[in-house]
Computed example of a mutant assay.
Amino acid sequence: MSAELTRFSHLLDSINVGKVNIITGNNGAGKSRFIATATTKILGEPLPSKSKFRHVLCLSGTHNDKFPREIWQLGSENPEICYLGYKVANNMISDIAPFRVIVKALLGKNATRRCSPEAINFCLQKLNIDAEIKLHFRYGKNRKDSLSEFVSKEIQFDIQAFQSTDKSLAIASALEEKDLSLQTISVKRESNYYTLSDLSSGERAYMVALLGALYCAQDNSLIFFDEPENSLHPAWQRSILKDFRKTLELNNIDATILVATHSPLIAGSISNHDAFTCNFPNGQKWQESDLYGKTTDNTLKNQFNLYSSRSTTVVELTQKCLSYITEGDFGSPRLYEAIDLLLSLDLKPEPGDPMHEILQTLEHLREHHELP
């Protein structure tokens, strides 16, 4: 076994149960390989007999997730696996795919146990939608005559008041057998209905996350969430894991979460006693997080090894100017070329920003050829 695979196996075996385990690292550092290795290893263990986890739930903020083929192939057949990504076949993706899984879970025979009213209300509030939704279906080939008797191409119901019935179970069965397929969902805001195509990609991603936690997570789940930050506004990056966990909590679901992210807002969004981090490629073990409450710049520096969130052009020109000043070389034409280039960028830092004072100093130096 290679050193990387050994490290991956150790990290999975030592995962902090019931907590949020956060993987960070540069592109190509191995985060996606770790997720692929971890899910493959879990698949190789008979669930639940030999594993500490009874269920695996896979979510992805990207269409190009690295979950192994077995996950998205078996997810529709194996009740111990749930895939809420976008892959439906080799080189084929579908934006509606995760919603089809969620709707089958909502309508299925186990939905009632998972429908905590508090959790439903919380999700509706966070998603800014009403309880009334519409499901739009398409009949399978040669199935219209037999199916249209009990299900129309559009059904409407209130998810707060939803109760499993023979009809809902029959619809779930028809969806499972592919005699019926979900075409889209319409959600209601105030008096208007919006289909999924009317929503932004960020809205759809947040909806998949919260409704997935509501209807698809089970007790003792291991939940993989690959790059949840994609398409999300920074404010939503800061709240998505917190809202996801709150949904699980209100639904009385105990779960372990493993997140791979490039976002300092996501990495620092969970309280330190509930989160553990590992920075690839050199991280060898989980460390209790110390990122909660830190500024984004501090998180970028301490966890992502990025020492400034400024444009690299600004950083390089500033460092060039300061190096000449440190050496006392006030007569170098290159110093003033660098100052001119930096000032030409028309930067507007806030008064409390160190760059504000640096620019004032450089402007004085440019005019007087000496420091103020």
Rank of each mutant, 00 (worst) to 15 (best):
I96V: 14
T40H: 10
E45L: 15
H10D: 12
T24L: 04
R113E: 12
F53D: 02
G25L: 05
Y86D: 05
R69V: 08
N78Q: 07
G44D: 13
Y86M: 05
T62D: 02
F122I: 03
M92E: 15
S14I: 07
T112Y: 02
N91C: 06
C82S: 14
N26W: 07
V103G: 08
N64I: 06
I71S: 09
A119S: 12
L106N: 02
P46D: 12
A36S: 13
G28V: 09
N26C: 05
K52M: 12
T40A: 13
G28Q: 07
D65G: 07
G25Y: 07
S9D: 15
V103Q: 06
L106M: 12
F122P: 03
K87H: 15
R69S: 00
A36D: 10
I35Y: 05
Q73E: 10
S9T: 13
I71A: 14
R33K: 12
N21W: 13
A97D: 03
N78P: 02
T39S: 04
I23L: 15
L47M: 15
S32R: 06
Y86S: 04
D95K: 07
R7Y: 00
K52R: 14
M92W: 09
R69D: 01
R69P: 01
V88D: 06
V20A: 08
V20M: 15
R100F: 02
P68Y: 02
S49D: 10
C82R: 13
N26I: 07
I71W: 13
N16D: 04
S9R: 13
S32L: 07
K87Y: 06
E80Q: 13
N78G: 00
G44P: 09
S94R: 14
V103N: 07
L47K: 08
P117S: 13
K50G: 07
R7L: 05
R69L: 02
I96T: 08
R113F: 05
N64H: 11
S49M: 09
E118C: 11
G28I: 13
G18I: 15
K31L: 02
N27L: 02
T40V: 03
F34C: 05
N27F: 03
N26M: 07
F53P: 01
A119T: 05
K19R: 15
F67G: 01
P79H: 03
R114E: 06
E77M: 08
V56C: 01
S14L: 12
N21Q: 13
G61K: 08
L47P: 06
I102L: 09
Q73C: 05
S51L: 00
G28A: 09
V17D: 00
I35N: 04
K41C: 06
P48K: 00
G30D: 10
A36F: 07
L11R: 09
G75Y: 08
W72H: 08
N110I: 06
E70M: 14
